[in-house]
Design a protein around this nucleic acid. Structure first.
Lengths: 324, 324
DNA sequence: GTAGTTATGCTCATTTTGAGTATAAATAGA
DNA sequence: TCTATTTATACTCAAAATGAGCATAACTAC
């Protein structure tokens, strides 16, 4: 293509998440065709225009995607596009970002519907159905994933311990933060479509179940990194509020937390945790729905800078004592 | 220099840490001259030779630096070299890495001295003296840093809250993980040499105290990121063992932890914590020095893959109840 | 021996956490 | 209007984790 020895392009790919319609949603671009899956919003990094990558990113996200980002965080820089067909022009290094945004809130109950961001937002868990434990342990785990992994392990016995840890078998706990580790294992075991594409561009016969919806190139890997990082970060930094509107009930906060963590939490203890954290201030207003009206809270000082940013130490239950 | 619109080079800079001589040490390269400070070990990323950046990194580290890396972790990708004089040839994006390595252990007490890695290893805290609280709160904080920051805040009052949080004032706790935040503030307030260099290449009169030793370009920023990440990661993943030799006493483990965290820990509680974690197995051997001989432990299964990798939830003390 | 030093064992009061039960305040339908 | 249902909020209680210290063991140095 070019004669320069290493022509490198930097591509900023961003997992933009929001909470909307009782779902954790991710913004996508492009049309899904049989040949090409959708992809994350992206833009090139242009060192001459933007001093830092984050500035560049915020810029084209606002232009192309039309949302204002609350929290922005660099995730990881992937250079091994070689794991995909390297027909692409130059070498592309993609820097993955996680961004959180708030849905616009209706000011009054009768206000315009929540400004249905015209973009293409999809439920995050369509890409990682095995990560959503809110309805209990997903059946696909015991029904499809673990059997298929076991079959794979017969050949590659090396990975047995990684599988055990990532998928919480044999006394190991399911750790909801290991999103990336699980996805990578499924990729290696050729249980996700991206692996099949990479292995063999010509439609080879698909073995095994093909799990979750695919994305362009390694974008699902970036998305997995994003979810894992967000789940992890929730516990020690107050990022959850960047997914919330300015006023919200504790139940809404809990719902959002549960969406992100992929598990259900104990309501009374969640309340205790949040109240003790001191992040919130009651507004005095209430919001009514079906049962008893709920108090509306807002962030203290409208800012997160107030206290030792400890985050919500949400816990997903104590490990059951195994044998011994 | 070149006519291509965006010629980008990727530079892998690595903070390689080890524990040696009762110190937490960092590997440096280059000679310090008045014009140029030392720098972190680095190498270019060559997409044609190495499939992933980490592979490339491990390769040239072994060649040039001559150490085997235990833990390797990508930290952050910095593109704003523009914050430095952009006379440099092309645009350089530097990907920062954190790597941990073990010092070679003498097999018997009379063995060859611990293979004094011929490289240039320096005490990490010469670059961040304010981060070491093992001898108590560093005097330079109240003596130099905070007064200078206050003076700076008179002009830029915006940053007051960031300073409060990062440096733990007005009831905020000192959070040992905020290494980067503190360094960035010192940079912005022009209290570190790198800031003076960037602002004005020609030796302008140095105001203020100049804190800690400087490094090339933004390498001290990478190092700050490394220390912060390591301090944070200790608490939830068992990375500390990648700094330890194969057999060690609990006191040695505690010393290493204290070096990293920059604080002293309660010995008995540390022991309880480690024992409960189940990471270690007593070898039956003991190691004698001055007082009662200490038992030598080693990692379980010689691997970290055993259990829910919870890390050592080291605590640095409960926040003192302030007013109310 | 004896003093000093370090490792290890154990106790104890608090705090945090997981898991309930109980009560309050609304809606929806008979 | 009454009643069942739903949701929010308040409290309780036992178990586990945590912070701090005392006590003892097993050495070295003199």
């Amino acid at each position: 293509m070019s004669s320069t020895p290493t022509e490198i392009l930097i591509d900023l790919s961003t997992a933009i998440l929001r909470q909307h319609n009782e779902r954790l949603e991710c913004r996508l671009v492009g049309e899904a065709t049989p040949a090409r899956a959708k992809r994350l919003p992206f833009g090139p990094f242009m060192p001459h225009q933007h001093r830092t990558m984050e500035i560049g990113l915020r810029h084209w996200v606002r232009e192309q995607v039309g949302v204002d980002l609350a929290h922005v965080e660099q995730l990881y820089t992937f250079a091994d596009q070689g794991r995909h067909a390297s027909e692409e022009a130059a070498h592309i290094v993609s820097v993955g970002y996680l961004a959180l945004t708030r849905t616009h809130e209706a000011r009054t109950p009768e206000d315009t519907p929540p400004a249905p961001d015209d973009g293409d937002w999809e439920d995050l868990y369509t890409f990682f159905p095995w990560e959503d434990w809110r309805q209990g342990r997903p059946e696909m785990l015991d029904g499809q994933i673990l059997p298929a992994l076991d079959k794979w392990l017969e050949k590659d016995t090396q990975a047995a311990d990684r599988v055990r840890l990532a998928f919480g078998r044999d006394g190991a706990q399911w750790d909801e933060e290991f999103v990336l580790e699980r996805y990578e294992l499924l990729y290696e075991a050729a249980l996700v479509e991206e692996a099949l594409i990479d292995q063999d561009a010509k439609g080879a016969p698909r073995p095994q179940p093909v799990l979750g919806r695919a994305l362009h190139l390694d974008h699902r890997r970036i998305l997995a990194t994003a979810l894992g990082r967000l789940r992890s970060k929730l516990k020690y930094r107050p990022v959850i509020f960047d997914l919330m509107p300015s006023g919200f009930t504790l139940r809404a906060l809990q719902n959002t937390t549960e969406m992100v963590m992929g598990v259900n939490l104990h309501q009374q203890n969640f309340r205790r945790l949040v109240e003790k954290s001191g992040f919130l201030i009651a507004t005095g207003k209430t919001q009514r729905a079906r049962g008893r009206p709920a108090e509306v809270f807002r962030l203290r000082h409208n800012e997160r800078t107030e206290r030792p940013l400890s985050g919500l130490r949400v816990s997903t239950g104590r490990p059951k004592p195994s044998g011994k």
